[in-house]
Amino acid sequence: MNILLLAIGAALVNNVILSQFLGLCPFLGVSKNVKTATGMGAAVIFVMTIASAATSMIYYGILKKLGLEYLNTIVFILVIAALVQFVEMFLKKKIKPLYESLGVYLPLITTNCAVLGIAISNVQEGYTIFQSIVNGFGSAVGFTLAIVILAGIREKLAYSPIPESFKGTPIVLITSGLMAIAFFGFAGLI
């Protein structure tokens, strides 16, 4: 039960983008149509789950045992960068169709605040390794949900009469703000 609450909380209540403001750059930049948004979301789910697992294992296995917790920022970012490289090479060799569909989004996720942010908050909240994986997966599902919804709205927005100075980024930000208000409704869920 606790795990389920953790997953739902991570996806809906403390949504990575709309509540914690992590991962805004890809959220606003890659959400032009639903296809690219789902691609990005899938890539983020993939990377965030594996990264949460790897970083929490390294934290509890190596850093904490040697008393080197202060190195966690440096170690985490290097681990995430290396992980994305390895995952890309592995997918390219073994599971070509998945690599083709994820495409250019994999390298884009390396400097994404979402992955590093979730990794650090897993450690700061003191989650066990399994809880970190669930938190990572739930957060990534929440990211995918938000970005796909925004992509759907943006596709429709292209046909609407928008004032000249609001075209482009401002109207997307206002839409995200309204989505954030909507997601407030989940606050009483857990």
């Binding site: 509540s19 403001f21 609001f166 980024t169 401002p170 703000g177 954030a180």
Partner: peptide, 21 residues
């Protein structure tokens, strides 16, 4: 709260867009 940030930034950018139009 969170949504307000989006709104304020949107209006600031719209203002700047108007100026640089």
């Amino acid at each position: 709260l969170a949504p307000g940030a989006f709104f304020v930034l949107a209006f600031i950018i719209a203002f700047i867009n108007k100026k640089t139009a």
